[in-house]
Design a protein around this nucleic acid. Structure first.
Length: 365
DNA sequence: AAACCGGGGTC
DNA sequence: GACCCAGGTTT
């Protein structure tokens, strides 16, 4: 009696063939899947999409992908751009370090390799490209037999093999990478038409996105249910195990709206790295504790009587709950440095959604 | 191994 | 509200 962990070449072969056939028939028509010529994809478009898609849902990326590609149509164009332009096109996507890393990545690729390299090892040497992204480009664009494991793939593989583990933990990832490697090698060695590493890897992710979903998976429609341990044991809903989540950290922000005689608004750029790194904001104070008005006035160098409380709201991110209080100054602060901008200047500015709201309020009336 | 880093859709 | 997402880097 073979154990469940024992290699089963015939089962793996069936999994690979079924999945590839399903993907060929059910793949979504996404802009980064566009084929330029003779079945090849633009590696640069693939790179941009992969970075944008990190921890970001397809529907979010769809709004930003084409405008970004229009602004930076080629790797050379992106490499030649200023970091501020790149950040501006990333506005609203979140995880802004990705934009700065992508910019550094293409410059590095141009200077070191004369363009984007093809091997996963070379790709992974570039800024912002880890094992997943390197494997994705090498396999999907160049059809190399490189495994890929993201959140989707972990969930699919854990269910397929009936492993009650948590997504994202080191032990889980290690097991998934090994399993994904076995399967992609099986796809590589397959003699069936339409079965290859590119189709298998992308199919695995597409299955996780469309069928083997976190909640209410469509097992009856799944091409792999005949091989799936979780389905056989009716364990789809208990695999993977629920994530353990940390409480959101509170953050308090006091923002100051200052206008000059020309109705311009005072803004400044946040330091690179850290929260909203490199993005623009109105003068803002941050603290782990509530900021009394007197402290805000002191820090901004403005009299308390010149500070008008204009708005307050809570901005939620995955990891933070940010309590924002917006003040307007009736007298410019002596200590404040920054850049004066007109309303129209802010359109091409790199901003997060929180400061977008504050800046809009700043120009109101 | 754990912390850090966004945003918005969905249930 | 909690959960999710084509992760990588830093500590």
């Amino acid at each position: 009696m073979p154990t469940s962990d024992e290699a089963n070449p015939r089962r793996d072969s069936a999994i690979v063939r079924s999945l590839c056939a399903w993907f060929r028939a059910n793949a979504r028509d996404l802009p980064w899947r566009r084929v330029t010529k003779a079945g090849t994809r633009d590696p640069y478009r693939s790179l941009v999409s992969e970075i944008m898609l990190q921890q970001t849902q397809v529907s979010r990326v769809l709004e930003k992908f084409e405008p970004f590609l229009e602004a930076f149509p080629t790797l050379e164009a992106l490499a030649d751009a200023d970091e501020d332009e790149v950040l501006a096109m990333w506005s609203g996507l979140g995880y802004y370090r990705r934009a700065r890393s992508l910019h550094a990545c293409v410059r590095q690729a141009r200077d070191v390799f004369g363009g984007l390299p093809e091997s996963a090892a070379d790709l992974e040497s570039l800024k912002g490209i880890g094992r997943y992204t390197a494997g994705a480009i090498a396999s999907i664009v160049h059809n190399h037999a490189e495994p890929i494991v993201d959140g989707n793939v972990e969930r699919v593989l854990l269910r397929l093999e009936g492993k009650p583990m948590r997504v994202g933990e080191t032990q889980t990832k290690n097991w998934c990478w090994e399993r994904a490697e076995e399967l992609v090698n099986k796809a590589k060695s397959s003699k069936s038409a339409g079965v290859d590493p590119a189709t298998f890897n992308e199919g695995l992710m597409e299955l996780g996105a469309l069928v083997c979903t976190p909640k209410s998976p469509s097992c009856e429609a799944c091409p792999l249910h005949g091989s799936c341990a979780a389905y056989r044991e009716s364990a789809q809903d208990s695999i993977p195990l629920p994530k353990t989540r940390k409480a959101k950290k509170p953050l308090y922000m006091a923002c100051l709206i200052v206008r000059d005689a020309k109705s311009r608004l005072l803004i400044s750029q946040r330091p690179k790295g850290g929260l909203w790194g490199g993005l623009w904001e109105v003068p803002t104070i941050e603290s782990d504790a509530k900021l009394p008005k007197s402290a805000v006035a002191e820090r901004f160098g403005v009299a308390t009587t010149a500070l008008i409380r204009e708005d307050s709201f809570v901005h939620e991110t995955t990891h933070r709950s940010v309590a924002v209080v917006v003040y307007r100054s009736t007298a410019p602060g002596v200590k404040l440095t920054g850049t004066w901008v007109y309303r129209a200047d802010t359109d091409d500015l790199a901003t997060g959604s929180l400061q977008d709201r504050v800046i809009r309020a700043g120009f109101a009336e």
